[in-house]
């Protein structure tokens, strides 16, 4: 159950995507997401979906892992799709169950439901690749570097990124701890999956009290350990690994720019002007 969460996990490897500079990966992912929201028609949407699938193939991460990640958000997709069908009343009415109600299923409602679902799938596919192929330390390092201009506004970028590193580092630890606590309380007969809503909420107390206690204990221990190694923020700290953009990263940027251009052209330039020669003939 909780063991099956794959979103946010890192799968070591040495594919093209693994070797890309993490800063480049973050920028390309952001670019992709923006493009995804710029896209207006099915042609460009399928182009984006195809690129996402192609990237999965390049990353050499098994499809089972990817599908597992998608399964987690299936509910969200179904919910959004249902909302679209129920609330979009523009277009031709296809089905009206109760004539007195305002509710009706329209062709545009179905269209936007399908469109949105594919958009979410593409979004999750592509953005989960970022964490699948980048180790947490690389990721936070890259974020620190990308946000460094904010230092001019006196934002403590280093502290923020250190907090993120620590948070990411402790997710698997706390999940493991949570699993043990659940197992231990189940061994004493805790019943987590039946009863009324109130009963189920109460059943969480034996799980979350120990989890919070242990999170605080770990926080204290880590703070002491950092203090013992003379950690005092960014001052005087040097880096072991210096990030440098290489030819591979420029290839990535170029591909991403071409994709955005293609999507913008097909979405916003009227079709007739693209096929202008045909119309002349």
């Amino acid at each position: 159950m909780i063991r099956d969460i794959t979103i946010g996990q890192y799968f070591p490897g040495n594919s093209f995507l693994h070797l890309l500079d993490p800063r480049a990966k973050i920028l390309i992912t952001l670019f992709y997401i923006v493009t995804l929201f710029l896209c207006k028609n099915f042609f460009s949407l399928f182009l984006l979906l195809a690129v996402a699938i192609l990237s999965v193939l390049i990353s050499r991460i098994s499809f089972r892992v990817i599908l597992k990640g998608l399964r987690m958000i299936l509910l969200i997709i179904l919910f959004t799709a249902a909302l679209q069908i129920f609330y979009n009343s523009k277009g031709t009415v296809l089905w009206k169950p109760v004539p007195a109600w305002k509710f009706a299923v329209t062709d545009q409602g179905i269209f936007s439901a399908v469109f949105l679902s594919i958009r979410i799938v593409a979004l999750i596919l592509f953005s989960s690749l970022l964490t699948y192929t980048t180790s947490p330390t690389q990721l936070t390092d890259a974020i620190e570097r990308l946000l460094s201009p904010l230092k001019l506004l006196r934002v403590n970028v280093h502290a923020l990124s250190m907090m993120m590193t620590i948070a990411l580092r402790f997710i698997p630890t706390l999940i493991e701890e949570l699993n043990i606590i659940i197992s231990a309380q189940k061994s004493r007969g805790a019943d987590l999956d039946s009863g009324s809503l109130l009963k189920r909420a109460k059943a969480l107390v034996p799980i979350f009290v120990p989890l919070f206690v242990s999170a605080f204990r770990r926080a204290y221990e880590l703070a002491f350990a950092m203090d013992c190694r003379c950690y005092n923020g960014e001052k005087g700290r040097t880096r072991m690994k210096i990030m440098k953009l290489g030819p591979r990263d420029y290839v990535g940027f170029a591909a991403s720019a071409i994709l955005t251009a293609a999507v913008v052209v097909t979405s916003y330039v009227p079709l007739s002007s693209i096929f202008i020669f045909e119309s002349v003939i």
Partner: peptide, 20 residues
């Protein structure tokens, strides 16, 4: 299966971390 939970008592490692 449910009664087995009580008939086979399992005490995990560091059980003090499960007090609540």
């Amino acid at each position: 299966t449910r009664s087995v939970r009580f008939r086979v008592g399992l005490c995990f490692q560091y059980p003090e971390y499960q007090l609540f």
